[in-house]
Design a protein around this nucleic acid. Structure first.
Lengths: 330, 330
DNA sequence: TTGAAAGCGATACCAC
DNA sequence: GTGGTATCGCTTTCAA
């Protein structure tokens, strides 16, 4: 049988109410009995029944997190950031992985919503409409991290539009004039739209008319990078390429290797994300690193602050880490 | 205000008890009213308050999962396996990431235990003793996945001892006589012990006396692989090396590249784990692939079956996937 | 087949 | 400071 505050109260000869006050550090009580009770609770191996606590309290301190199972290796970093902040501020994280399988997705989300949650954070999740409806119809706060959903729900992400300017400027400064963008051709997530537009506009700022053929690739996948090299053939019609995710860029790098294209001499690569993966390649990938841990922290602090409106858009900083995949063209 | 079964009951003109029976599919009720109630619940946007349900039921269907934040990229695969099975059998997963920071670890585990859990599954977690005590003193079922903890708690993993035989045999058949094992020198996790012993015994089976120097490296980290190559210098005193995790093997591969050691001609590499990472290298890593998804599924089914004793040890299959990192020596 | 009522464990309000 | 008590939402006997 599990131990309840009542058990503790009985043994200590005081009321359950007092035990509750002491164990939660709320209201008034004498430090003397408090000591005794805390000791007793510990000795008896007491664990709060959180379900009971949740039930009797109106406000919940649990934040649901939806993580896509499609292996985005930065999800861990965001979660880590969230977890640290949550720990610090006394919140709890309830993490749920969502499959692409929509049937299961709805099920998962519904079971999430069955816990009274303070908010639900979606990590780069490309939610299906049906699931999104479920989410919005339930009245929890929603927050999207690393994916912008303009004016629908608040979001925390990098400034994807500006990021492309940073990259294009960098490549331009290194003498590149012909550039491609791989893996951001989805019509769907706003991130892709912003990156495309940023890419095009940044080129225009340098007086370069973009070549629509050079924006290619839909899936955020290793294969997309491999395929891109195959598609454009040798010699490549551009001198630099931007991979819209680390995993894509690794595909580009290996695809180039397979086709005897030497990086960076024959092809320069800049990747977006800058996770640990970028350190595993030879040469090391030059990357615009997103601050995922910060996104996670901000997610929690903003939820705690209640400072979110559907129009809230928060950007975290990005850093350009130069590796060995960009050559200067003379 | 949130909608409760009482609200539904009122609107439908029946009792809350009936609504509960219908919505949980328990006990008797007429299918006719059931239809009506289900429809109504849906229309009203009802979500079960799981806390209340948990509180009133003795038995829980929630499985806690402890995942180490130290990026082991196979944790995802195990979780995916668990999640699929859990979904199928009607269980819920409560995933908690645990930091190496012990203070936080205890906190996290305690908050896990505050939910009444059916069981706690530890994924390759190297639990600190203090945390382990907390876990065992609370009366939940414990299960270790991908890490054996002989005779203390039940476990599901690969047969690490046999796996080393498979690898050594494979390398021996390819003509190798001098082999090293990198990243399994920890005294601590039993997995490391088993791998070392398997390695030594497998060599002995081929009449090879092992060289203690050739078992080296403690951390399961990229850097361990890099360092190993540096430590042994050129030319390497062995022709083949076994990396005790994919990330280590990638370190070995890049370390070799940096030292102008050609893989596989100058050095053969076999990696343990066989995650997607192995596909990202050039050459592709030859790997003994563990069946992580299966481990996850078995974890859930065995918890469901209640068939676990502290001495239970379940092995899943391993496959040797030949890539391009093993050469035949003549 | 359905309803009334008694919990489940913790919290919070209100007296004392 | 401390103790009684209603309450949260759901499940589950037990009667009807």
């Amino acid at each position: 049988m599990t131990i309840t505050i009542k058990d503790i109260a009985n043994k200590a000869g005081i009321s359950a109410a007092s035990v509750s006050r002491i164990l939660t550090n709320r209201g008034r009580f004498s430090e003397k009995t408090a000591q005794r009770i805390r000791q007793l609770a510990n000795d008896m191996g007491y664990y709060k029944n959180q379900s009971a606590a949740d039930l009797s309290q109106k406000e919940s301190r649990v934040i649901g997190v939806l993580v896509p199972t499609t292996h985005t290796n930065f999800a861990d970093e965001i979660i880590k950031g969230m977890q640290n902040k949550a720990f610090e501020l006394g919140y709890e994280l309830l993490i749920a992985f969502v499959e692409t399988n929509s049937q299961q997705q709805i099920q998962t989300v519904k079971s999430l919503l069955s816990r009274q949650l303070l908010a639900v954070v979606m990590l780069a999740v490309d939610i299906e409409d049906s699931v999104f409806d479920v989410l919005t119809s339930a009245d929890v706060h929603l927050l999207s991290v690393s994916n912008q959903l303009n004016n629908v729900i608040p979001s925390i992400s990098s400034d994807n539009y500006a990021m492309m300017h940073t990259i294009v400027d960098y490549l331009y400064d290194h003498g590149h004039r012909q550039m491609a963008l791989i893996g951001a051709s989805n019509p769907d997530p706003i991130v892709a739209v912003l990156r495309r537009q940023g890419f095009i506009d940044a080129l225009a700022d340098h007086g370069i008319t973009y070549n629509p053929d050079f924006i290619w690739g839909v899936e955020t996948a290793y294969q997309t990078g491999l395929d891109a090299i195959k598609k454009f053939g040798t010699p490549l019609p551009f001198t630099a390429v931007i991979g819209s995710a680390d995993i894509i860029s690794i595909g580009l790098l290996n695809g180039a290797k397979d086709a005897d294209i030497v990086v960076p001499n024959d092809l320069s690569i800049v990747t977006v994300d800058g996770t640990e993966l970028t350190q595993l390649t030879r040469p090391i990938l030059t990357a615009t690193q997103q601050n995922f841990a910060k996104m996670g922290e901000l997610a929690v602090t903003n939820i705690a602050d209640q400072s979110l409106s559907p129009h809230t858009v928060i950007f975290t900083d990005i850093t350009l880490n130069s590796g060995g995949t960009v050559a200067t063209i003379v």
